[in-house]
Amino acid sequence: MSKDIRVRNKMIRNILFYITVCLLVLLTVFPFLWMVSTSLKYDTQVFTNPIQWIPKPVNWNNYIRVWEEVPFLLFYRNTAVVSVFGTALQVFCCSLAAYAFSKLRFTGKNVLFGLFLATMMVPWHTIMLPQYVIMGKLKMLDKLSTLIMMQAFSAFGIFLMRQFFMGIPDELREAAKVDGAGEWIIFIQIIMPQAKAGMAALTIFTFVGQWNDYISPLIYLNSPEKYTIQLGLKMFAGAYTMEYALTMAGTLCAMIPIFVVYLFFEKQITQGIAFAGLKG
């Protein structure tokens, strides 16, 4: 009798668990489905009650207007330049710093690393004004290069790559030094190839953050020809009106590179997060 009770209780727990998971998935997917549905509507259909998930008629013209009414291709190019070069710079610089913190010995290493981690607890909004003042004095306002340079270092990136480097045996580095290899050769030819999963994870995190960034371009960019996609989407909002259907169509177009990057790096991202969590 007790065995039947245990089986029944386990079944009830499993049912409750799956119901909870399904509700969470629905809660996560609902905004995306609404965005897709809205992108195919006319503005007069957007806020109908109840929600019309499959609009009648379907307005595919929104996806054409996105590219015609604003220089969306230019915004795409600007965002790609900032995201690609900013990501490459951050991955390289964070890997260099992580190598030093994980493999080299120098006075105050742990203290300095602790200070780096402490910066993760400081909201960026508290330092954006001093950063703006500094960039203004350096004559770096209204330049895409400013957005790239500001992404050179990340405390999270250094932490993530350090976890990977710590999992690489020190014997490899010592054997290379015996053969006459310098630190630069060891870093490029031995350490980096062993941390491809970590680099992939950091690449996707950084790229997504750069691509979706709205605040930094809003603060530092003034010329419309230098706008990124996130600022370009704001052009669909007038002084008194908001073209929701057009904005949703533009947002979906802006998400395409994110999907592509994730599809290419999905396996490495999963491995990277799992490995960093275990090492942490």
Rank of each mutant, 00 (worst) to 15 (best):
L112P: 10
M140C: 07
L144W: 08
G108F: 09
F207E: 00
T206R: 04
A175S: 15
S216H: 12
M150E: 02
L104T: 08
A155V: 05
E225K: 07
M135N: 03
N222C: 04
F153L: 14
S102V: 05
S154M: 13
F207W: 02
I215K: 13
P130Y: 01
F187K: 08
I191N: 02
G157W: 00
A200K: 06
Q163W: 05
H125G: 12
K139Q: 12
F106G: 14
F164W: 04
G108W: 12
M121E: 09
I229Q: 06
S216C: 04
N110A: 05
I215Y: 15
I191T: 03
A201Y: 09
K143R: 15
L144R: 11
I215E: 10
L218H: 10
V178A: 06
K137Y: 10
P217W: 01
S216L: 09
Q131V: 03
I158H: 01
M149N: 03
N110V: 06
V178H: 01
T203I: 04
F116D: 08
L160G: 02
I168H: 10
A152M: 15
T119R: 02
F101Y: 08
M140V: 02
T119Q: 03
M166D: 07
I204A: 01
T203L: 03
G114F: 13
M192R: 14
A195Y: 08
I127T: 13
L172N: 07
L144A: 14
K103G: 05
F106H: 11
L117T: 03
G167F: 05
V178W: 00
Q189S: 13
A175M: 04
K196D: 03
A118T: 04
F205W: 11
K143Q: 15
V111I: 15
K109D: 09
L160Q: 03
P130N: 07
M149L: 15
S223A: 15
Y132I: 11
I185V: 15
S145Q: 14
K177D: 02
G182N: 09
G209A: 08
A195L: 07
M128C: 11
S102I: 10
V91D: 00
A118V: 04
F165E: 03
L138N: 02
N212V: 14
T119S: 14
F164Q: 00
I219F: 00
A195T: 04
L129N: 12
F92K: 04
A181P: 09
L138K: 01
W124D: 07
S154D: 12
R162E: 06
L144T: 10
K143M: 14
Q210L: 12
